[in-house]
Each structure stands twice: as C-alpha cells, then as structure tokens.
Nucleic acid binder design. Structure first.
Length: 271
DNA sequence: TTCCAGGACCGGG
DNA sequence: CCCGGTCATGGA
C-alpha cells in the first residue's frame, strides 16, 4: 500500500493506493518527459502543469500539488481507479509473476493521445535516452513555456504549421517527415483522435496506420499509452525476443484483456 | 569501426 | 505474404 501526500489548503492530505509507484510508472519506457532530478525527486508535466513528486520511502510519495488538481487530473493520469492489484494477482505464469513482483507499482499512464502518438513515432528504431532528447528539443523549440526549462508538448496544430526543415533542430532524422504527416492528418481530421477513443483496439490501429511512419507497433503503443487500451500489445525488438524465448506459443491465457499491462512488466524485465 | 536502438517503407520474389 | 536494404542519429 503506497501512501500519497498532497496539499490541501495549507495542510497535508493523505491517500492510500495499492500498486502505485509514480517513479516506476514515469520511468519505465512508456513516457519520455518525466525527469528524475535525483533518486528522490521526479518532475513532469501533466496537462500543462508542472508536477513535482518527492519520494519519502519506497511506498511514500509527496505530490507538490493541490488536492483539487490531484483529483481532477492526476487520478485519471495515473489511472488510479483501475484495480491493478486485482489484475496482477490473476497472473499465474512464473516468469510474469516474477516480473510483476520486481516492478510492482507500474501503472499504464493515461497520456495525451497526440503526445503519445508523436512520441512513439519518434521512438521507432531508436533508443530511450535519445528519444527523450529529441522530445525535449521538440518541446523547447515548439511548445509553450511553463516554467524555466519546462515546456508543454507542442500541439498538433503548431507542428502542422511547420516545414520539415524547421524540425532539423530536434535531430529526429528520417522521422521528421513522419511527425509532420501525423500532425497534418490529426489537425485535418483525416485521423480523428477523438473518435479513436470509442473504437476497439483493432479499429484504432486501422485509423492510426493511415499515418506515414505508423505501423503496427507504433499504433499499439499509441493505443496503450495514449488511449489506455490495455489489451493493446506492442511488440518491439525486446518483447519480440522475450516472446521467442519464453512464449513461443503466445502470451499466457491469464493476460487476456490486459496484455498491455503485462507487456509493460515484461518490457521492464528485458535484458 | 561496427553495431544497435520501444520500426516502417519500399521493392522484389 | 515474406524478405532484405534503407533510412538519421549518437552512444557503446
């Protein structure tokens, strides 16, 4: 049980949640903008506001934010109303149980759809430190300033107004043209992110792959991390290896319906 | 120097 | 349908 503290009109409000480690959740490869300033301080941006989280212990976290914002935004962002403990306790396959135990507390974040789409286009054939760097430059150059050194993720409209050479500064390589195509199709409505919210994972995939540079894997990451479709199962080079080694006949039956959650624990257990 | 990274596109068989 | 080459960039 994790204890979460936050501000409440000058005093401190306390909540308790099972299976919730914001540090692990923010730095497990599903989001790229949470910064670990040191081992006890993490800073991120959620909904155009800076969120500082201090780790007091392994199961105690102080959110430097008011209760109202926590309830109205962060409960949703961290998907705190989903019973992860219940889901994870149904996993009965040995390797998966081991990874869940080791990384217990990871939640699939409900990130902004556009940010997730754009971020995972950038992620293709790339490594996590470099993905973070490209996204940081994208925000610094084209986002809105929130505080010193902290910028919002640029809107699709903003990106759509750019030319491919404008993006040279972020050093995303061949992905720049994909980012622009995504921004244009999203702003024009050719790919309607709002409609995807009500679609099945399969239907959503068929929409997203209309974008150049979006194949099955990027689509699945977008659906999982940007639409909270927890049955989406992204297969990258790491998961591919794990599947070949541990699950040649497919994922264990116990993960049915929450394949994406299982995937994140397996991904953290890579190497 | 070569290899590789939360892949996708393109051409050819 | 599947295969291999290619695409930028930078750390190991």
């Amino acid at each position: 049980m994790s204890k979460i503290y936050m501000q409440n009109d000058g005093s401190i409000e306390q909540r308790e949640y099972k299976c919730f480690d914001p540090f692990l959740s923010g730095d497990c490869g599903q989001a790229f903008r949470w910064k670990e300033i040191n081992e006890n301080l993490m800073i991120g941006i959620v909904g155009n506001r800076l969120v500082r989280i201090e780790k007091k212990n392994d199961d105690e976290f102080y959110f430097d934010i008011d209760k109202k914002y926590f309830d109205e935004v962060l409960v949703n962002y961290f998907d705190l109303e989903r019973d992860y403990d219940k889901i994870l306790s149904t996993y009965d396959e040995e390797n998966l149980v081991q990874k869940v135990k080791k990384y217990y507390g990871i939640r699939i974040l409900r990130q902004d759809s556009w940010e997730a789409l754009c971020s995972f286009i950038i992620s293709q054939n790339n490594n996590i430190p470099r993905i973070k760097g490209i996204i940081e430059r994208l925000c610094e150059n084209f986002g809105e300033k929130i505080e010193d050194n902290y910028y919002s993720f640029p809107s699709a409209e903003k990106i759509a107004s750019l030319e491919v050479e404008d993006l040279a500064i972020i050093r995303s390589g061949f992905r720049a043209k994909y980012i622009l195509d995504a921004a244009k199709k999203v702003t024009s409505g050719e790919v309607d992110l709002e409609k995807i919210k009500n679609m099945s994972t399969e239907e959503g995939e068929n929409e997203l792959i209309k974008i150049k540079g979006v194949g099955k894997k990027v689509a699945m990451c977008t659906l999982l991390f940007g639409f909270n479709k927890v049955d989406a199962f992204p297969v990258d080079v790491w998961i591919k290896r794990i599947m070949e080694e541990k699950y040649p006949n497919g994922l264990p039956e116990c993960t049915k319906g929450t394949e994406g959650i299982a995937q994140q624990y397996l991904f953290m257990g890579r190497e």
